[in-house]
Amino acid sequence: MSNETTPIRPDPVFTPDAAFFWEGVTRGELLGQRCSDCMKITHPPRPMCPVCHSIKRETVKLSGRGIVTSWVIPRHPAPIGFAEAPIVALIELEEGIRMVSNVIDVAPDAMKNGIAVEVRYAPTKGGKAVPVFAPAKGGARE
């Protein structure tokens, strides 16, 4: 499912405040934005901390582990850039932030809320990547 030979998935959109996220993913790292002053992790990224209003921010490597908070399968019209309908999911990461992603390696019939997942990386057609999530193997990893 995730090992397309020639990727057709759309590239992510790089905005000035979120470019670090997609650059990280393309290198195989899941990064979050952390405030350098109060340590608050925010997603989506933004140029100012909503808690202490600092503009000093740093990237932090995220665990890549989370649970599925919600999920859907877009059936019609077919999404652009997918050979088969993906499972689109909202992942709640251990760090307490949510992000939109895909769940892979789970059959649509077996999909349910609350399953534990961990990050993988899926290539996009222009040579970038996005984070996707597969069922967690359990226990410590890499």
Partner: peptide, 29 residues
């Protein structure tokens, strides 16, 4: 469905939604 714009860093105001940025590459379009 909308295909997201490709290439380079894009400035998007977004009309109050992050859908273009955070949903498009996952097939929520």
């Amino acid at each position: 469905p909308m295909a997201p714009p490709s290439g380079g860093v894009v400035n998007i105001a977004g009309n109050g939604t992050g859908s273009l940025l955070w949903c498009m590459p996952f097939g929520a379009q």
